[in-house]
């Protein structure tokens, strides 16, 4: 697998789509998932997301994402089960009960999060960051500074993850046992390591800022990029489709 948020090359429809269309599609798709609580519809959207992943040859990576989202959604689901007393009572609690409605809400939340995350995840993996920032500047007229800030933030995430890994390895070599004592102990041992991570992050961002300045960052305008990002018929079709799905979601709500 490629590194975290590292472009996965390919020739699928998603790869070929206009970066702005992809981004809009993914964002509207995510919003749409929050417009409905219809579990069947959300399940269908999850399947649609998986079909998109399969078309880009990214099933393995997508399952990895789903696993991570599932862990997070499990916490939300647990909170919902314990706090929303609805439907037929199944288990009595001192403050209410766990009902069929609570479980349905928890399942819906999990499926919703999974369905909403997949297109966003795919968008970042099948679009080069440079294309994403250049296209939002050209097409959406977003100032380059803001687009660059966003893409460089995304770009730096794996860099900082690598830094943290390096720092943890260095401390492991000095005898710190991150693998002993469970999650709480691991967090307790990791907190002091935020200092070197912060120092290295500031140094790196400072270097990147200087490098950008000396290469004429401030002179860059919307016209500076030579590449054009025209909308093709399939871009329009994708946007129409996602808007139609929003309408369906609202109707099914």
């Amino acid at each position: 697998m490629n590194g975290f948020l590292e472009y996965v090359p390919g020739t699928s429809l998603l790869h070929r789509m206009n970066p702005v269309a992809k981004l809009l599609f993914a964002v509207i798709f995510a919003i749409m998932c929050f417009c409905t609580s219809n579990l069947v519809f959300l399940g269908a959207m999850l399947v649609l997301g998986l079909v998109m992943a399969a078309s880009c040859g990214m099933m393995r990576q997508t399952f990895g994402l789903m696993k991570a989202v599932f862990v997070f959604s499990l916490i939300l689901a647990l909170l919902l089960i314990l706090t929303s007393s609805s439907g037929e009572p199944l288990v009595d609690l001192p403050w209410g009960y766990i009902g069929t409605g609570s479980i349905l809400a928890a399942v819906t939340t999990s499926v919703r999060l999974e369905a909403a995350a997949i297109p966003l995840f795919l968008t970042f993996y099948v679009t080069k960051m440079s294309d994403l920032s250049n296209s939002v500047v050209k097409v959406l007229h977003v100032p380059y500074k803001y687009a660059f800030t966003f893409t460089s933030t995304v770009h730096f995430i794996p860099v900082f993850m690598n830094d943290m890994k390096g720092i943890m390895e260095a401390q492991t070599a000095r005898g710190v046992e991150f693998d002993q004592g469970g999650f709480v102990n691991k967090v307790r041992l990791m907190v002091p390591l935020c200092v070197p991570l912060l120092v290295s992050s500031v140094r790196k961002t400072n270097s990147a800022a200087i490098a950008a300045e000396v290469r004429g960052f401030n002179l860059r305008t919307r016209e500076s990029g030579y590449k054009q990002y025209p909308f093709a018929a399939y871009d329009i079709a994708a946007l129409v489709l996602v808007i139609a799905l929003v309408v369906v979601a609202v109707i099914l709500h």
Binding site: D163, G166, I167, E169, A170, Q171, T172, A173, R174, G175, V176, E177, D179, Q180, P192, L193, V195, P196, V199, S200, R203
Partner: peptide, 24 residues
């Protein structure tokens, strides 16, 4: 051997000191 047991036997100097330094 656990990492701490190995750390008692083997000291390791990394290429980049900034990975190692973490105190004030």
């Amino acid at each position: 051997l656990k990492t701490s047991e190995l750390a008692r036997r083997v000291g390791f100097l990394f290429q980049n000191p900034d990975s190692q330094i973490c105190c004030n």
